[in-house]
Design a protein around this nucleic acid. Structure first.
Lengths: 344, 344
DNA sequence: CTGAAAGCGCTTACAG
DNA sequence: CTGAAAGCGCTTACAG
């Protein structure tokens, strides 16, 4: 308490963290001069002074307090990632399964962000909570991942928040957007099944609503197009995005006498694979299955999952480009690719 | 530029984010009064004033700037997670595989932290970089995940950083520690293999150095104990923590005529499974395999992986307890449990 | 090239 | 119960 109440942060050794004032005193210059040196405004300061300051910075182990710096209107070089749909809302309370895609996404984004000098915070709360989070912490930008139309308004009409929308749908002309060509992804998945002779296809995924333009719906539309071109039948079944949902769907797949399945996530496909195995069906013999995301788990399943790779690396770079150089209304669409393994 | 230079953050609509001063003016009180209300120090302020302030807060959509608040010595309610070993250092440049365990860890930690009012940032850089990161951003605490003796010194001898060490080894008596009883984990894994009649075991994992006390070494020691008790042979092979490393190890497993494998990560085990399949060996028939971590991928492999569950949920709670109530030198050791599936 | 001053948004003793 | 003042650590015009 006392150490905090005084406003002087002290470590276990009782030492105060050195401030810009300490450095200034030690170097015999003003705090302003130190600030100039630290910010590379070398024309404001003589080389000799700069050298002396740098020397003291090293000696004292001075590190700039970015929270204070951000207060004066500088950028905080901190970035928030908001992911509202991380947990299956139906699984509240227990330990809900997590789509491993988001772990990949977060960690790879942090890597790219760090190279560009940004720190990343992430937040999985909903609407109101996220807005508070962003406003409170003075974030330079927010990466909104997997948002749909109805999640957006609160976030977007708040002043001072620069957003980049990732795999999100909704009207946000002031912000940048990065997404995969989802229609093409759905098309590639269905096309593969058709190419290997399947004629009764099933689309399996979260809310594939034909009237909306969210991610699963776009993929659905792409799959439809492939099926229409080939004169092939496409049924739909809504499921949660989880292994268990896929497991559960297997019975329906058998009942419907389907011979090819397009999923919207590798984890769903993994569940389908196991469900079908339990029911004695062979994959891809009886039913061919396409995953989506091309996660590492595609290698682990038996048979290994054919999947759609969304070009995550490229998307993440596009996100960071828009964070650094905002372009209101910019839309970067990355083309997905098909990765064939054993399941289709 | 101009908007930032003035220090007034404006949104796309040109509105300044309301500050405590704005609220004070509107409510006809001093900024101090608003601060008191906001911080629940209600005895400092009359109920009528409090009501008026709260009313204006709502009206203006005021949100406290936590960066500013943390400057005056308050807690920032922000927490850093540092994970130095996230990427395989050998795989620099390319897109290195990520152990999915860390994604789980991060996401579940954020969930628990959020419930307790903390935001979480994470950082995967090494030593110097991490120290800078923590110092610059005024973090309340750092969760150091997977550190070994040689990574620690720089972080620990810096003033003002409260740390909780997670699955880490090294001398840090001023900080709290949370870990699994790794010896028991190794013991449980080897014991299972012995129980099902295996007599030639192999330990497969990162740096299982018998002289050190890092995580893999502890597990190794546990496995040794089980083998000694049963008079069973235990060989060792060092591998990276990845699917490919496991795949690669399969040939050696066959060459060594081993009939049971203890791994230190589910991803390694997944690779072993596939490698053995390619070589025409059956699991668990010819070789039984134990994973470690009990990740969701244990369900996806064929055969499904028997594994050691490290009680992540409980560990995360312990971490947050120590973040909120530091106890220098506290060591919370969680017992792992064995989860049997098909591979052993 | 250098320093004193004012300000960022917030909090906390301290007088009234 | 309330307000004016000083301060947290930093930055930026603005005089010298």
């Amino acid at each position: 308490m006392s150490e905090l109440a005084t406003g002087k942060r002290r470590g276990p050794d009782g030492l105060r963290k050195p401030t810009i004032t300490d450095v200034a005193r030690e170097a015999g210059v003003s705090a302003a001069a130190v600030s100039y040196v630290l910010n590379g405004r070398l024309k404001e300061v003589s080389p000799a002074t700069a050298e002396r300051v740098l020397q003291k910075v090293r000696e004292l182990g001075y590190v700039k307090n970015l929270a204070a710096a951000s207060l004066t209107g500088q950028r905080s070089r901190m970035l928030a990632v908001i992911i509202p749909t991380l947990y299956d809302p139906r699984a509240v309370g227990a330990e809900p399964p997590i789509n491993p895609f988001y772990g990949e996404f977060l960690i790879r984004l942090e890597h790219e962000a760090r190279l560009r000098g940004y720190a990343v915070c992430f937040h999985t709360g909903h609407e109101e909570e996220s807005v508070q989070f962003l406003l409170q912490r003075n974030m330079d930008a927010a990466v909104l991942a997997g948002f749909s139309e109805w999640d957006l308004p609160g976030l977007l009409k708040n002043p001072g928040i620069r957003c980049v929308l990732f795999d999100s749908h909704g009207h946000a002309p002031e912000h940048g957007h990065v997404r995969t060509n989802e229609q093409k992804g759905g098309y590639l998945a269905a096309e593969r099944l058709i190419d290997i002779g399947r004629r009764r296809l099933l689309f399996l995924g979260a809310k594939p609503v034909a009237t909306s333009d969210n991610v699963p719906s776009e993929r659905y539309r792409g799959a439809c197009k492939a099926c229409e071109l080939a004169g092939v039948q496409l049924q739909v079944m809504e499921t949660a995005v989880s292994y268990d949902a896929g497991l559960y769907a297997a019975q329906h797949i058998v009942d419907m006498a389907v011979d090819g399945v397009v999923t919207t996530a590798d984890v769903i496909a993994a569940g389908v694979l196991d469900g079908l195995a339990r029911l004695g069906r062979s994959v891809p013999g009886d039913v061919a299955v396409m995953g989506y995301d091309n996660l590492p788990i595609c290698q682990y399943t038996r048979p290994q999952l054919s999947s759609i790779d969304q070009g995550l690396r490229e998307k993440i770079r596009a996100v960071m480009d828009l964070v650094e150089q905002p372009e209101p209304g910019a839309v970067r669409v990355i083309d997905p690719t098909r990765v064939l393994r054993q399941s289709a």
